[in-house]
Design a protein around this nucleic acid. Structure first.
Lengths: 337, 337
DNA sequence: CTGAAAGCGCTAACAG
DNA sequence: CTGTTAGCGCTTTCAG
């Protein structure tokens, strides 16, 4: 591919002049400008972004880490992030890290050397000293969806109110007359699932319903682990009248397990999901959901890093961290009554 | 971040020596080697990949274009591609192009200037002169899943035998006693769906079953367009006894539409899907599927570009194109009998 | 308004 | 075994 020098020679000017017309920086005589443009045209010249990046000290690249893109939740977030990245002239590098902090660390290390301009991390897990170090190193970063308690005020965060949303949904279930509410709860290592559990317990307590630990199913390893637990809980002398799955992937396996048991939904037992991914409206019965704005979380996260990048360009330092808490909405379909 | 020069000074050697120890290229005295390593340690030095790329003329970056990552099919492929990219030291840039050839073109143009080392395109649509130009420009590229008839022999291609797989599945349905087989067929602009349709027709013909155009539902715009068509076809005097959806996203909406109609599956009408994404085993009833190795398609595509990249490094030109046709498998679950 | 020159950080001959 | 030099392609003072 042609470079700036060949274009310059063809146009009979210096490389700096070509640079000026390409980037519309500085005055340039209309006639020479035309000559340059024509030379660009003829050589089909495209500036080398690598060289430009090296010179300017940034790469217009964002790094997004997710547990796995195969999970619909993260696919949705990724799409949101990619859309706003592109609108702003950034390119998105996708990193699947599988809940593996080591892989996450390596990826971040790699992307630092590639001069990623910023990071969107949806894979927060463990203690994450490397994430601290990343920000301390002056790298713009935002935590989306997953974050720890102690992260608040330390990093930019985009999420929903996990406690509140589950509290409200549980209260709604109670108001609807459900009394034996089971919770299919995600990995306890993640703050967000601890919060969801806390919201559930608090709502029970505030409504005078005793907490029954036999009614909480918790993830051990893969999602499959919910199948035997659903069987167990439905075999209880007093089985639940509704199961609240605190994420849609879980909701789908719970739904499946319930069907295998030959149970009717919501007649025999109701089901409430969390996330509201598109498919939740398509399964049988269509699921009632706590609807989390996943696409918007991704989009907002991208906006947040870009804000940091621009701020840093201007002021030389990262702006103070901000947290963005997006609203959640209850959508009632046919899996609850 | 520290650069090679500061490390060199700290170690009391020249930058080239640092480069030599970092890259394990050329002999270096054990003692000075140790000094350099220590300096690297102390400065927490990481080589600047951008500079390295500029110098070496490649970026260790692969560009993957997909219609949308929100589609489970492409999420699966993406994961496969990313895994092998990473194993080989490549980084994956994700480009959602939404069946929009213009966006695809722009993305490719952008990634060329970023010196992407290779392209995996799952978004092939239209005439794609820009794709020809890309390969003519010496860029390694592979078409995965989606390709046109005339692409064979021109580009590396990774896919399945669309004609054969649908032919076989249709023949299976016939052998199972189904006689009125409806086909929910994808966008006719895509070669792969034309091939699937052809496989269906051929199987019918070879088995002496007349083709009935009233039995083919075809995508007009979004997937929603199948809902009224399912209604229409089930209201026929002689409704189908099975619907074959030639991709899983379609299968899910057809399944939904059937449920809304109050039909039992497979008693009233059976359903066969295509793709075998994970969720297809979880819906009610679990779907019988033509199982396409999506993850493997992505992985194989990544291997294919990397092969081209290496070949080009060695020989200066792209290797002759090869097509890889992966096997498909019929998985019978409970949506057919 | 335009060109010369320096330099982003790195690697690779080429000497020594 | 190690340093010097040149240069990847671009931008950006600084002169003119």
């Amino acid at each position: 591919m042609a470079n700036i020098k060949t274009v310059a020679e063809l146009a009979g000017v210096s490389p700096s002049t070509v640079s000026r017309v390409i980037n519309a920086t500085g005055y340039v005589n209309e006639a020479t400008r035309a000559r340059v443009l024509s030379a660009v045209e003829r050589t089909n010249y495209r500036p080398n972004a690598l060289a430009k990046s090296l010179k300017e000290g940034h790469s217009s690249t964002l790094c997004l880490t997710v547990p796995s893109i195969q999970n619909l939740i993260f696919a949705e977030i990724t799409r949101g992030a990619e859309d706003v990245a592109r609108e702003n002239g950034f390119t998105l590098v996708l990193c699947n890290v599988d809940d593996n902090e080591e892989v996450e660390r390596e990826y971040i290390e790699l992307m630092k050397t590639q001069w990623a301009d910023g990071f969107i991390l949806c894979s927060r897990t463990g203690t994450g000293g490397h994430i601290r170090a990343l920000r301390d190193g002056g790298f713009p970063l935002v935590l989306a969806l997953r974050f720890n308690e102690e992260d608040v005020g330390q990093f930019d965060i985009v999420s929903v109110d996990n406690f509140r949303s589950v509290y409200d949904a549980t209260a709604y279930l109670l108001r609807s007359g459900y009394r034996r509410i089971a919770l299919a709860n995600g990995q306890r290592e993640l703050f967000l699932y601890r919060e969801r559990l806390r919201g559930y317990r608090q709502a029970l307590q505030d409504n005078g319903v005793p907490f029954d630990s036999a009614l909480v199913l918790s993830q051990q390893g893969g999602l499959d682990s919910f199948v035997p637990q659903v069987r167990r809980v439905m075999a209880l002398p007093e089985p639940p009248d509704v199961i609240f799955a605190d994420s849609d992937p879980k909701a789908f396996v719970v739904l499946h397990a319930l069907h295998e048991l030959g149970l009717r939904i919501p007649e025999d037992v109701a089901l409430l999901g969390y996330d509201n991914v598109e498919l939740s409206a398509l399964v049988q019965p269509p699921l009632s959901e706590v609807s989390q704005p996943l696409y918007e979380i991704g989009a907002a996260a991208a906006r947040a890093v870009i804000r940091q990048i621009r701020y840093k360009e201007e002021h030389g330092v990262l702006p103070p961290p901000v947290s963005l808490v997006l609203d959640v909405e209850l959508v009632i379909r046919r899996s609850t009554r």
